[in-house]
Design a protein around this nucleic acid. Structure first.
Lengths: 256, 256
DNA sequence: AGGCGCTTGTGAAGACGTGCACAAATCGCG
DNA sequence: CGCGATTTGTGCACGTCTTCACAAGCGCCT
């Protein structure tokens, strides 16, 4: 939080912005800001205040300012942030200036949907190859891509640089697939299989488990039900919902 | 998030375990513990130590013990935790003792996959109804369920209690769908649409954005690339991967 | 019965993230 | 040119989460 405040000293002015080393929580919110900024740009806005952008991204304005301050001072006091400039900066920090290639392993139920998801391409990700272990699925064409056998992974990875591997296999196959991805040099993995994966140090790993999200919601549902059943000190909006849905943008508990 | 501290007062000792009021971070990990426990039970284990369960769930053993201590003392010192008992307790806390009904709105690319995802049913969730706004999709049968028009939501919700609503529509339709879900009494929503949704107080809302996950990985990938390009103080496992994949269960940055 | 090894449960300290509140900076206008 | 309105950037305090380290408790073996 207190390195290179760098009062001026334009000595180097190199291309590398000195690796700001952002807090993880901030990194997780930058994509949200980026999406909001694209929306604003499409709507014709040239500048936006922290309040406005915070609303569009569903966060507190103080938090947003602190987040953005970590990447440098790209706002103008009294005015706000230049939308185009901020988009450029965030994309630069996130490494989205180059199109990143994604290898998707497991073309089952979920894999099919991911292969056809257009939200990837629109954010600068290109699905470079599809793999599956089931011979019955190999050869199938999805969204213009042919499914290959997972054993061909090394050959395909040698031809084109794979930035990110996505695992959408059953849990039983996930660890083996992760090992294969690591073996061909993939250092970032997104795992949809409901299991814990071990990867060597230096490999980044994120997990998305749909059932877990439902279970967390189930807990809160359960808690709310218990509360209404009790004597009830606080149960205002819980017992009978206001038909007006006043829509205070309350957004609770997005998962840290 | 800070109500009823409720300092003890063992006067009641009723059947209700006093609403432990778990930390949110703990709640988010309980489903992971639960899955690991089921695996252990299937493997025939009767008890498990905090170390063993922590490994299976991919967390620190101290964290696991503290998490479990929040639901009470269900372990035996010198022995460990009774697997079956712990499963029972966690399921009770998460409200999974009853089967919860899920309404899925948006049967596009992703919605299709979700409707067919068997990971829901196996965790006690039942997809009770499918909805879409596109008349061309209404009537289609997926996994034994017929897609209905979203306008029928009130009627269907009146017939059966919906615990959780899942939004898998395009971003442009998501807010309207959320409003409709809230209007019929749904108080827990899982949103897959890439946009911010406003819901009234008392409604819990979680979001899963696949593109954001990739962008977070992209950041780390970008950072790692910048590091290797620099003088290089630390670049041990990054430059050349060890073929042995020693598999220290390092699991970095799961998103909390 | 007593001691020993093992494991849980927890106090305390540190790291991290959040939000308030305000000084500093900028623009526009008279 | 100066002033007020506006908005950023940030120091500070607070709450949450994580991790360490160890006392308390339990079972087993002698």
């Amino acid at each position: 939080m207190s390195q290179h405040r760098h009062p001026g000293a334009p000595g180097r002015a190199g291309a590398v912005p000195a690796l700001p080393d952002l807090p993880e929580a901030t990194v997780a919110r930058l994509p949200e800001y980026l999406r909001a900024l694209h929306n604003l740009a499409d709507a014709g806005h040239e500048t936006v205040s922290s309040e406005g952008l915070a609303n569009a991204a569903g966060v507190n304005s103080a938090k947003l300012r602190k987040d953005l301050s970590h990447l440098g001072s790209y706002g103008t006091r009294g005015v706000g942030y230049d939308v185009a400039l901020l988009i450029e900066q965030i994309e630069s920090v996130l490494g989205l200036t180059q199109c990143r290639s994604v290898a998707l392993v497991g073309v089952g139920n979920l894999g099919h949907a991911l292969a056809g998801y257009d939200g990837f391409a629109s954010r600068g990700f290109r699905i470079a190859a599809l793999f599956d272990a089931d011979p019955a699925r190999v050869g199938e064409e999805i969204n213009g891509l042919v499914v290959r056998h997972v054993d061909e992974l090394p050959r395909v990875a040698a031809e084109q640089l794979i930035s990110i591997g996505v695992i959408a296999t059953p849990a039983s196959a996930a660890q083996a697939v992760a090992d294969q991805l690591v073996a061909v040099g993939v250092t970032s993995i997104l795992n949809f299989a409901p299991c814990v994966l071990s990867v060597p140090e230096g490999v980044d790993m994120r997990k998305v488990d749909l059932a877990i999200e439902l279970q967390i919601l189930s807990f809160h549902e359960h808690r709310k039900a218990s509360l209404t059943a009790l004597p009830g000190t606080a149960g205002s909006a819980l017992t009978a919902l206001p038909g007006g849905l006043a829509a205070t943008d309350t957004q609770e508990a997005i998962g840290t």
